[in-house]
């Protein structure tokens, strides 16, 4: 005899399911929501007991302070510049590499690809000390370029493999047709194939953006002067500089989160693709 679930138990089950999902959603977003609420409060109402749940009076003074009286805009632009250059370099190098890996077979190809894949597994903390020493020796310490170069090297393996997958989905006949029509191999690549991988390039760009925007340890170690700091480093020193002014700190945190959350909401597919191919740099 098989028991069929009655109407009541079905109702109960869906209650439990939705209950758990709502609780998990609250758990996931409450820290962020609390930061937003704090950032909109006046200095005095932040330190009330019991805590004031919704900000009243609502104020933007924390944001105004962060935007006009702190170095945060500078850090923001620094981060944008480093992220932009890293994306440019990473995508250029790894889309060419990915194409070669997808279309050609030559001796040692698999070994090369495997070695590249292995470097995904090398943790940042292991190479941090030698990178610091090398950067000091070649005079690149405290420059944007050292960050851009190292980030690019860290992002290439995953992105190259991702791009290789994309190139493999493009039928070879397209290139053959282009070659028949008198295109060179290079011409076929740049004019026909590359434009077709735009969705892949976009997904890769999103992954690189998030990884580089969020990275802290390397940026903290390889830059020393205040005006070279990236956003996470700026936030970290923000604590030390003024004691902790929570309202202003949370406003700065919200500003740092904004691009990532916007990207995430609008490009969720690319995100999910990238997140599951993530590396373990730590």
């Amino acid at each position: 005899m098989s028991r069929r679930p009655g109407k009541f138990s079905k109702y109960l089950e869906s209650m439990v399911v939705y209950g758990i999902l709502i609780a998990a959603s609250l758990f996931a977003i409450f820290p962020i929501v609390w930061a937003i609420l704090t950032s909109l409060k006046q200095e005095a109402t932040i330190f009330l007991y019991p805590p004031q749940w919704l900000p009243s009076p609502l104020t933007l003074e924390n944001y105004i302070h962060v935007l006009y009286n702190s170095n945060m805009p500078r850090y923001f632009l620094n981060s944008l510049w480093v992220v932009f250059m890293t994306i440019l370099l990473t995508l250029t190098l790894s889309s060419h590499g990915g194409y070669a890996a997808a279309r050609f077979s030559f001796t040692g190809k698999n070994t090369l690809l495997f070695i590249i894949l292995l470097t995904v597994m090398i943790p940042g903390i292991v190479v941090l000390i030698p990178l610091y020493l090398l950067a000091t020796r070649v005079g690149l310490l405290d420059t944007y370029w050292v960050l851009i170069l190292v980030y690019t090297a860290w992002q290439i393996p995953a992105v190259l493999w991702l791009m290789r997958g994309f190139f493999e989905t493009i039928p070879r006949e397209l290139e053959e047709a282009a070659l028949m029509d008198g295109c060179s191999r290079l011409g076929a690549f740049y004019r026909i194939i590359w434009p077709l991988t735009r969705p892949g390039l976009a997904a890769a760009a999103v992954i690189v953006f998030v990884n580089v925007w969020n990275e802290f340890i390397l940026a903290a170690t390889l830059t020393t002067s205040d005006d070279k700091r990236l956003i996470p480093v700026g936030l970290y020193y923000y604590i030390g500089a003024y004691g902790i002014e929570w309202g202003k700190l949370m406003a700065a945190v919200c500003i740092a989160l904004l691009p990532i959350i916007l990207l995430f909401i609008f490009l969720q597919r690319s995100f999910i693709k990238g997140l599951s191919s993530g590396s373990v740099k730590g």
Binding site: L21, A24, S25, A28, I29, P31, I32, W34, A35, T38, V210, W213, N214, E215, F216, P232, L235, Y236, I239, W246, L249, M250, V253, A256, L257, I260, I261, F264, I265, Q268, F271, I272, L275
Partner: peptide, 20 residues
């Protein structure tokens, strides 16, 4: 969307959010 959100928050920012 809501549940995945913490994964895109930087470690540093997570630490700040929670310590507050």
């Amino acid at each position: 969307t809501l549940i995945i959100l913490p994964w895109v928050v930087a470690q540093l920012i997570s630490a700040l959010l929670w310590s507050w």
